[in-house]
């Protein structure tokens, strides 16, 4: 466990909590893509099946349970408690365009052709693209609430910190996981355009709106 990894995990947790806090305090999930949140819940559910088979560490176990719980609470908020505020008309990304290629790729490129490993691989590939419905929604509406941009910033920062973690692990442990690394690079690239807008607009006190 290195500093990049722990900061990455905390950044990920902070992003999830920011989103929940936004919905909780404003009693609204306007501007949030329910589809992206369903994909993230699917990512956690398929990746953390190993909770039933292996014990890695108490930290690992607790974090997995927290991520899972939070992602299901988020879905309950969007499609249950706060469904009247859900902006369905702008959340129009077609999930099959992500799911079908991701399922196909996980059958083609994986470490082992066994169910748990295929599900892990699926979750890694899916995570790389799971934010696309959210980014698509923002480009549909042309704007995002500032709190939503903070959520996206920490979610992107988490993956960027994981890249640093992998570089560190390669140099210190000779550990590398090419499936995770390639997907992580792709995932981080999706955030670059957003990072640029976040730094040039949101951090200067302006609302994120697209021209």
């Amino acid at each position: 466990m290195n500093v990049f990894r722990i900061l990455g995990d905390l950044s990920h947790l902070l992003a999830i909590l920011i989103l929940l806090a936004k919905m909780w305090r404003s009693k609204s999930c306007a501007g949030i893509s329910g589809k992206s949140q369903v994909l993230f819940a699917l990512v956690f559910s398929t990746r953390y099946l190993d909770l039933f088979f292996v014990f890695i560490s108490l930290y690992n176990l607790v974090m997995k349970v927290i991520y899972l719980l939070c992602s299901y609470i988020t879905i309950y908020m969007i499609y249950g408690k706060l469904r009247k505020t859900y902006d369905r008309e702008n959340d129009t990304f077609r999930l099959e365009f992500l799911l079908i290629p991701v399922i196909g790729l996980s059958f083609l490129e994986n470490y082992d052709f066994i169910p748990t490993e295929l599900l892990w691989t699926f979750s890694i590939y899916l995570e790389a693209v799971a934010i696309l419905p959210q980014l698509f929604m923002i480009s549909n509406t042309g704007e995002a609430e500032t709190i939503t941009t903070h959520y996206l910033f920490f979610l992107g920062l988490y993956r960027a910190l994981y890249l640093a973690n992998w570089i560190w692990r390669y140099h210190t442990e000779k550990f590398y996981d090419q499936i995770a690394i390639i997907s992580g690079v792709v995932q981080t690239i999706f955030y670059c355009d957003f990072f640029y807008l976040y730094i040039t607009k949101v951090l200067k006190g302006k609302k994120l709106s697209l021209p």
């Binding site: 190993d50 082992d112 994981y162 996981d177």
Partner: peptide, 10 residues
């Protein structure tokens, strides 16, 4: 090459 199973990252 390090063992890829179990995956120790989140």
């Amino acid at each position: 090459y390090a063992l890829h199973i179990p995956h120790d990252e989140l």
